[in-house]
Design a protein around this nucleic acid. Sequence first.
DNA 1: CTCGCAGTTAAACGCTTGTTTCAAACAGTT
DNA 2: AACTGTTTGAAACAAGCGTTTAACTGCGAG
Lengths: 227, 227
Amino acid sequence: MADSQPDLSSSSFGDDPTVDDARTRILAAAGPVFARHGFDRATVREICRQANVNVAAVGYYFGDKMGLYRQVIRQIHDSKERRFPSPAARQSEPTETLRLLVYTLLSRMLAGDASGWESQLMMREMQQPTAIFGDLVQESFRPLFEQLVETFRLIIGSDVPRDELEKFAFSTIGQCLYFRIGRGVIQILVPETTRKRAYDLEQLSQHVTSVMLAAAQTRRNSHHPLA
Amino acid sequence: MADSQPDLSSSSFGDDPTVDDARTRILAAAGPVFARHGFDRATVREICRQANVNVAAVGYYFGDKMGLYRQVIRQIHDSKERRFPSPAARQSEPTETLRLLVYTLLSRMLAGDASGWESQLMMREMQQPTAIFGDLVQESFRPLFEQLVETFRLIIGSDVPRDELEKFAFSTIGQCLYFRIGRGVIQILVPETTRKRAYDLEQLSQHVTSVMLAAAQTRRNSHHPLA
DNA sequence: CTCGCAGTTAAACGCTTGTTTCAAACAGTT
DNA sequence: AACTGTTTGAAACAAGCGTTTAACTGCGAG
């Protein structure tokens, strides 16, 4: 059943950027193609054309198209941890932690097309989950989510119910995500001059941070009216 | 060139729910299928199977698959205007207008599968725009966007730059969108008991409204420290 | 030299897709 | 009843897809 892959299927092998064999080239070419077209629309033939290998190579090295997709996902998670280490928790003020988390989140999403295909693939999984969606959320999403929840707990106070803190976290993520997923809408609704001036990474993260900080602090004051 | 459609291609004909000819049934079946699978993955055969017509009918009535898709989009815009009339502007307090706008937005997005395929299709257009994306944004998105901007102008004040108001509008939309598009993520990260209790339409719109109101009022106070 | 094995290739297979074909069925008019 | 234009039906078409096959290359070991 096409499970007779060569024994180099063990991980931490295809990630070495020094080698440039067929397997590595396929893996490197598959990511952007999957991100651009989605799993279904992406064709094995295009991936192999860009990797300069024969179409049979993906069957040889990865079993089938889904096996290749799985390896691409692993590659994403590894490289993300390498390039964007989770910001050191509770380094100083929780408000500063929130600011850093938002900046990190937006950085990942608005990354240039060269490396921005990773978050694009993640958004595709949101809208059309494949078999690996659960693992992707648990491994790559939950850490950031928990950090956001704990940060809001520090800002607002320990006596608000957890589901409220979670909604604050989702509101933060939602805003960041929209400035990426709604890029096409923004391009139409906002003239280019305004976009060039007021929609860069710094100002967007500043905006999202200030919105959520204002909401969190208002919520705290409403809960502790005696302060 | 397959342009020899029958003369009933003029609009405001297939929308009459009283008739039930082949063309109407195709149009009714195509929407959910396009929303579930996207334009590419959706198959003419499945649409025709659900509509109880032959596969040749779509070519006969709509020219080709893209022509059918275009008519589906028109149908969306029309029915939306009919079922969710724009909330009456400046009816009372602008804060109440904001609350109503958020509620309307979330209603459209979280609508059940029976009628929720419209916003789902909109989200697909965001991620993979087709030829009609521009029209869709201008006709169906800009009105709500402008209403949000004007509402925030009333809440915050007329002397803040417009691009800031626009960001507030996008933050509002982004949160609402995430509670729909990130539904799968939330299902994994939040246990079912909490979801059933705290994630219904009322509480979600209340949350988004309070977040944006707190942010807006904080922004006003920071700009008018003399009040 | 010969054998076996990892790697690669062109070609084919089986399947699904959108679209077209052409004849049959229908409805209305003369 | 006969004709005419419209609508439907089963079948076929070409193209593209993922996957498989079988032949072929090097190349080191026996």
